[in-house]
């Protein structure tokens, strides 16, 4: 499911299977690719960012936020998330294993600031756990829709 977000997209998918963290990042990016907010270069760049700079995208226990740079193939603002039935390891010293993987792409350095601040607030308030208990895409989408509520 996808919903428009000021010309961008919010998309959630629940309880997917991933073979490893690279597969999980590609799957998290998939709804954005389908909605054409990113090019197929972008998921590859998200993987390369982790390979180049370490698993810093794992922000909290069980939670990753994959992204690359605007020039890596972003057409419009988008945030997607998948939850995994089997968690994957990113190689993070403290926060592995990961079962909630966000992907976001922003077309410039500014557009995503209010969206990411809203995402951060909702994560602090328990959004990741609400996504974890969602059994289907529709329920996960409803949980993710929270982040559009405030600005």
């Amino acid at each position: 499911m996808t919903e428009d977000l000021e010309g961008g997209v919010l998309a959630a998918r629940a309880r997917r299977r991933a073979t490893d963290w690279r597969d999980a990042v590609h799957q998290a990016c998939a709804p954005l690719l389908e909605a054409d907010t990113i090019t197929d270069e972008y998921p590859r760049r998200c993987v390369e960012m982790v390979e180049e700079h370490g698993p810093y995208v794992v922000l909290a226990p069980g939670l990753a936020l994959a992204h690359a740079r605007p020039e890596d193939g972003v057409r419009r603002l988008g945030v997607a998330v998948i939850t995994l039935t089997e968690p994957v390891d990113f190689g993070h010293p403290d926060n592995d294993p990961v079962d909630v993987v966000f992907a976001f792409g922003s077309p410039d350095a500014d557009q995503h600031v209010s969206l990411l601040s809203s995402l951060a607030r909702h994560l602090v308030a328990g959004l990741a756990d609400r996504l974890r208990i969602a059994v289907g895409d529709h329920e996960a989408q409803q949980a993710l829709e929270e982040i559009r509520d405030d600005d």
Partner: peptide, 15 residues
């Protein structure tokens, strides 16, 4: 700080 400077570091900035 983070690797790219616009995702995790932004979330961290808010915290």
């Amino acid at each position: 700080v983070c690797g790219v400077g616009m995702g995790s570091s932004l979330m961290l900035r808010m915290t």
